[in-house]
Design a protein around this nucleic acid. Structure first.
Length: 150
DNA sequence: GCCAACGTTGGC
DNA sequence: GCCAACGTTGGC
């Protein structure tokens, strides 16, 4: 599966922040389904960046996986808000991937729009109560959004 | 800021 | 193994 969507709250870390940094370890994922998706990501996979908890949630741009999954160091750091005392270094529970900034869409694609698009009708993204922060994207979904984004 | 929906935890 | 309680996510 070469396409993914990753959510972020721009108040905490935005696509613009990623653009400034160039590349970033996507840490803090603490959900097993999302972690399993992380583990199946490969270098070169393409990623939609989605802004949540904003007035108009939606897809705002793209990134690329530049480093495959490895153990998220924040799980072992007692100072981190992502610290997981139940995880042990010999058997890490949580992973991260590193992503690099690729582009910012001239026109973001709002969740409201995605709800009306047949390509997304089966996507977990538009399901009520969906809390999955990383999810797979089909090639037709990827192409649809790129076309809309201009 | 509210709260529905969901995942996780822990008592039993 | 059930399920109530709790914490978190994320649209609104």
């Amino acid at each position: 599966m070469p396409y993914w969507l990753m959510k972020t709250e721009p108040d905490a870390f935005s696509l613009q922040d990623l653009q400034r940094r160039g590349q970033e370890p996507w840490d803090g994922i603490r959900n097993y389904q999302a972690r399993n998706f992380l583990r199946s990501m490969q270098t070169g996979d393409e990623v939609f960046i989605y802004h949540s908890r904003v007035p108009v949630p939606g897809i705002v741009g793209t990134a690329e996986v530049v480093c495959a999954a490895y153990p998220d160091p924040t799980q072992f750091d007692p100072q981190s808000k992502y610290y997981d005392p139940a995880s042990h270094p010999d058997r890490p529970r949580w992973d991260l991937v590193e992503v690099a900034y690729r582009r910012t869409f001239a026109h973001g694609i709002a969740l409201d729009i995605l709800r009306t698009v047949p390509e997304f009708s089966a996507s977990q993204l538009i399901r009520k109560g969906n809390r999955l922060s990383i999810l797979p994207i089909t090639s037709s979904q990827w192409q649809y959004v790129l076309q809309c984004a201009g």
